[in-house]
Write a protein that binds this DNA or RNA. Structure first.
Length: 272
DNA sequence: ATTCTTGTTGCATC
DNA sequence: AGATGCAACAAGAA
């Protein structure tokens, strides 16, 4: 689930903890690879007593800021999600099977990080300034800094790689994941296997416009009521024998860029 | 039992 | 040197 818009949705799930203090930290399995490269014990040492003062999402990355110069980086991997729960009346909280980090906050709420597939990542940083891995992230695809020029230059550098593989590269298409990439290519009427260097200038412009439209519209729909209209390709792409919501043709499926890819053979003609 | 998976990384190869 | 492709990572779901 977690691509750009869902990541920002997850981030907001911890909003009830804003301006609250960390009272206690549960780390049910500190050895799990979520914490690779970190020392979970120091996380507990430095975070308890601090106040959650802000959060931000960029692409699929999130950063939570705590008082006193403490930062928590969260990546949801394949199946991660953030959750907020009220403590039960007796002041108890039962973590779910795949909860790996739970912050009990003042005011009686719990902020939980759950990850059924353990591909996510928690990072901890202690300094007045945010961590370098965060400040050096590229702009998310839904922002104005994701310019046509930036995208066109990147396509030129990856000219022999198929469009689908290139759309998954976070160093340019920051926040795009597997279903968004398929959705974008389908709406731009571009076959996923077209080499990135084979696009005409007007096709590059169309692709850029479509990336922005899909990412911005997904952000709006998810922050609203999560109701994607049936005209969206990704609602149909996993059904066996799914058909194109635009022309009704049977969708094609295959592996591209190492990932399952769905496209409409009629709307996205093969070439290159 | 087998195969699939909405992500990233490290390594081999081109 | 830089670009590209792919296996590997874990564990649940179908």
């Amino acid at each position: 689930m977690p691509e750009l818009a869902e990541v920002d949705h997850s981030r907001r799930q911890w909003d009830p903890g804003l301006d609250r203090r960390v009272m206690e930290i549960h780390l049910p399995r500190p050895e799990v690879r979520i914490f690779r490269g970190e020392d979970p014990a120091s996380l507990r040492r430095y975070l308890v007593g601090k106040k959650l003062v802000g959060s931000e999402a960029r692409g699929k990355q999130m950063l939570f800021q705590f008082s006193g110069g403490a930062w928590l980086g969260v990546h949801l991997g394949m199946r991660g999600e953030l959750r907020h729960e009220r403590m039960a009346r007796g002041g108890t909280f039962l973590p779910r099977k795949h909860d790996y980090l739970c912050l009990r906050m003042s005011g009686g709420s719990v902020l939980a990080f759950e990850d059924k597939r353990v591909f996510g990542r928690i990072r901890f940083h202690r300094d007045q300034a945010p961590p370098v891995w965060w400040t050096s992230l590229p702009p998310s695809v839904h922002t104005d800094e994701f310019t046509l020029r930036l995208m066109a230059d990147f396509l030129a550098r990856r000219s022999r790689a198929p469009l689908k593989a290139v759309l998954l590269m976070q160093e340019c298409f920051h926040g795009v994941g597997n279903w968004m990439a398929d959705e974008i290519l389908w709406r731009a009427r571009l076959h996923p296997a077209i080499p990135s260097g084979a696009l005409a200038p007007e096709e590059i412009a169309t692709l850029h416009r479509t990336v922005r439209w899909v990412s911005r519209t997904a952000m709006r729909i998810i922050s609203d009521d999560w109701s994607y209209p049936p005209s969206w390709l990704f609602l149909h792409r996993w059904e066996p024998g799914g058909s194109c919501p635009r022309c009704g043709a049977d969708l094609d499926r295959g592996a591209l860029g190492g990932r399952t890819t769905a496209w409409c053979p009629a709307c996205q003609p093969c070439r290159g």
